[in-house]
Design a protein around this nucleic acid. Sequence first.
DNA 1: ATTATCTATAGATCTATAGATAATGC
DNA 2: ATTATCTATAGATCTATAGATAATGC
Lengths: 237, 237
Amino acid sequence: MKTRDKILLSSLELFNEQGERNVTTNHIAAHLAISPGNLYYHFRNKSDIIYELFQEYEKLVDFYLDIPEGRSMTLADMMFYLESVFDGLWNYRFFHRDLEYLLDRDPRLRSDYRDFTDRCLAAISRIFEKQEDAGIIEPQPESLRKAMSLNVWLVITNWMAFLKTAHAEKTSASLTIHELKQGIYQVLTIEVPYLTPAYREQVMVLREQYRPTMPEPLPGEAVSLTDAGNSDVSGVS
Amino acid sequence: MKTRDKILLSSLELFNEQGERNVTTNHIAAHLAISPGNLYYHFRNKSDIIYELFQEYEKLVDFYLDIPEGRSMTLADMMFYLESVFDGLWNYRFFHRDLEYLLDRDPRLRSDYRDFTDRCLAAISRIFEKQEDAGIIEPQPESLRKAMSLNVWLVITNWMAFLKTAHAEKTSASLTIHELKQGIYQVLTIEVPYLTPAYREQVMVLREQYRPTMPEPLPGEAVSLTDAGNSDVSGVS
DNA sequence: ATTATCTATAGATCTATAGATAATGC
DNA sequence: ATTATCTATAGATCTATAGATAATGC
C-alpha cells in the first residue's frame, strides 16, 4: 500500500479513536513510523487529509442513499438504509464530533458539506414518500414530511454525541457499533405514529430489536440480544 | 465587578463567539487587559473556568425546567419552557459545540453532565405527561414517552450545530437567537401526530410562527415575521 | 498582613519547510 | 531524472509558574 493511502487510513483510525483535536500531524507520522517531513510531502497539511477523508465519507453515504426509482420500498429496504447510514457514521465518526471547527477551517469543506446535507435530507424525504407509496406509513403533507426528515437527520447525526456524553465513567472512546445502531430505535420512534395498521406490528417488532440498553449494558447479555436483532433484518420484506 | 467575575464573563463571551477551542487563557487575559499571571491567580486553568460556566448553565436550565406539580399545564407554559430552554442554550452555546472534548478533559464535568442530561430528560417526560393530563396530546405508553423525550432532547441539543453547519457562506459565528429558536418548530413537529382535536389547531398555529426560514433568510422580511411570532407567545393560554 | 497584579520565562508542543539523501523508473 | 524519504530546525503558540511589586483592609 502506498504511503499516501496509509496516511489516510491511519489518520482516520486515530481521528476516530482519539478525536481529531487530539491527533496532530506528528502523531500520525509517529503512528506510521515515518517522518513528519514525509507526511508533508504527501499532504500540504492536516486540513487536506481531513478533506479527502470527508470525500470518502460523502461518496460512501451517497452510495448508500441512492434510492432506486423503479420498484416500491420494502421494510427490508428501509432497514438496510438505516443500517448502512449508521455504518457510514461509525466508520467516519470523528467527522461529526468536530464538524463546526472543521468547517470553520476549510471553506471547501463547508460548501461541500452543505450540499451533502441537502442531498441527505432529500434522500430521507424520498424514503418517507416511498414508504407512503408502499402503504407502510400514512401519507402526509409535504411540509410535515420535510420537518420529519430534518428531525430524522438531527437524531441520526446527534445520536453518537449523546451516547458519548450521557454515560459517565465510560470515556468517550469506548463505544461500539452496536450501541450506535440503537439510534435506529430512536429514528423509528419518529415514524411510529404514522404507521399504517397493515405494517404497524411488523415495524414495532423490528424497532424493538434496537431498543437502547440504558443506562449501562451488562457486559454479555444485552449485546447478544441486539446481535440477533441485527441479523434478523434481511429476513423481513 | 470583581476580576474573577470579569474573567468568567469574558470567557463565556469569547467561547460563545469564537468557540472554546479557539480561545486560550492568553486571549481571555488580553481581552480583559490583564496579565496571564493574574488570570492564573484566580483560576487554576481553563478547565476550571469552563466548569464554573457549566454550573451556571446547569443552574439556569434547572431553574427553567422546574415543573410545578400543583396546577395543570397550559400551552403558554409549554411555549415558555421551550423559549427558556433555547435561551439557556443560546447563552451558553459554546458548551455543546465542544462537549465531547470537554467531558474527556474533566471527569467532574462528565459526571455532572450525565446527571444534568438525566434531569433534563426526566423534565421533558414530565412535560409530556402533563400535556397528556391537560388533554393537549393523546396519552401514550411510558416507553414511547421516554423515546419521544430523548428525541426532543436530541433535536434541541443538535439544532444549533445544524444551523451552523448546514448553511454555506455563513461562518458559524453569525447566528441569531431568532434562528436558534426556530428549533421550536422542529420540537413541536415531534408532537404534531399526538395532538388532540381540541388543541391541534392552536398548536399548529403556534408552531407555524417558528417555521425555519430556509435556506437563507432574506435580510429584513422573513425575520420580522418570526419576531411577531415570538412575541405572540404570551398571548396564548 | 493579605490579596491582587505584573513581568518574565521555562518547558512543551505543533506546523511546516529547507536541504540532504535514498530509492525507483526509464 | 524523478519520486520518496529523512534530519534538523525556525517560528509560533500555549500553559503554568516563580518571584517581584502594588493595592487593600485591618
